[in-house]
Amino acid sequence: MTFGNAKVEATQGGLGVKNVQDNNNGTYALRSDSYKGSQPLGVKINGTAMKGSPYNTLPQVDPHQCTIQLGLPGGRLSKESCASGYRRMENMIAKVQTVDIDGKRMTIGNAKVEATQDGDSLTHSLHVQDNHDGTYTIDYNPHGAGGSQPIHVKINGTEMKGSPYNTLPEVDPHQCTIQLGLPGGRYDVDGYRKKENMTAKVQTVDTNGQKMTIGNAKVEATQALHVKDNHDGTYTIDCKCKPHGAEGSQPIHVKINGTEMEGSPFNAPQVDPHQCTIRLNMKSKGYGCKKAVVQAVDANGQKMTIGNAKVEATQDGDSLDVQDKHDGTYTIDYTYGYGHFR
């Protein structure tokens, strides 16, 4: 039909829907003020119920097709969880995406999503937030009260497919990365100067190739080096570094959860003489004396911040005094205007 004036009535939750609009083209718009949960909508035309009335106003959630994403940063946890001594920096969130029976992602809320996590002797209810866009956020701690504890998720009373879920993503040592030669470190033993101490930074990566944002992996380094868990997916290793190729340079072996990292053992950065720079004619004490400053650069083009490279200089065949500043620079005293300087 292409004209209006039919008597269209609608009810929802036992109440009449006031906003029924005749579009005068054979269609009618029904707008309810609000509804609590999924309330069926009854429709009558000229006093007769339409076929199929009452109608479900919300698409039906299929818990077996819904998805969950674990290990996202954030989370606030329940009082029970906080009282168990969990580190707040370790708190995480899981994000549930509801899907209807036709396999389409839902964009509305009001599903009943429940989550629990087992502890040593108690099961804790987890805080679930309805984002009203078809997704739900679950606050949890990946380590639980007694190590890694799975979480159970139910939607409208039915367990999600795959539930319970492991709360800790699995670390893949072969995809983890390491950054060497960073300034810092706390070691000052065996005659190493404090300025020579360095750190290496390990970034853990899970089996899906995603950077991890939680700690508690078992990271070990050779030479009894100190490893600090930063609880953000990274680990700091204190190193006693010398540039790769220098006398006494030792590689570092790194294991994660008992498996050697890809590329381990790792060498300290290697000096590239072709990228190193020099500044000449710097002021120095003494008449006619000048100072040159050499900046060591590694093979990646980065300025080095450690010493112990072997730097030699001559002027007209005579050896010059070279001072290692132990910060990646070397000073050379020479005589201005006297012979060739190498």
Rank of each mutant, 00 (worst) to 15 (best):
D130F: 09
D118T: 12
A94S: 01
L126W: 05
I101E: 11
A94N: 04
T135E: 01
S121D: 09
Y140M: 00
Q97C: 09
L122T: 14
N131H: 08
K104S: 15
T137E: 07
Q129L: 13
Y136H: 03
N141L: 07
D120R: 06
Y136K: 07
A94G: 00
Q129F: 12
G103Q: 05
Q97W: 12
Q117K: 02
I108P: 08
A111N: 10
G134E: 04
S125A: 14
A111F: 07
N131Q: 06
H127L: 15
A111K: 12
T116K: 01
Q97Y: 09
D139N: 12
K112A: 06
Y140E: 01
D102Q: 10
T98A: 07
V99I: 11
Y140L: 04
L122K: 15
Y140N: 00
T137G: 08
H124S: 12
Y140V: 02
N131A: 05
G109T: 11
D133S: 03
D130L: 09
V99R: 07
H124Y: 12
N110F: 11
A94L: 03
D118G: 05
G103E: 01
D120F: 00
R105F: 11
H132D: 05
N131L: 06
K95N: 15
T107L: 11
H127F: 14
T137P: 08
D130Y: 10
K112H: 09
G103V: 06
Q129H: 14
T135K: 03
S121R: 09
T116W: 02
Q117L: 02
H127Y: 13
T107Y: 03
A94E: 01
Q97H: 12
T137S: 08
T107S: 08
D133W: 02
H132S: 12
N110Y: 08
Y136G: 00
K104V: 15
T107C: 07
T107V: 15
R105S: 14
V113S: 02
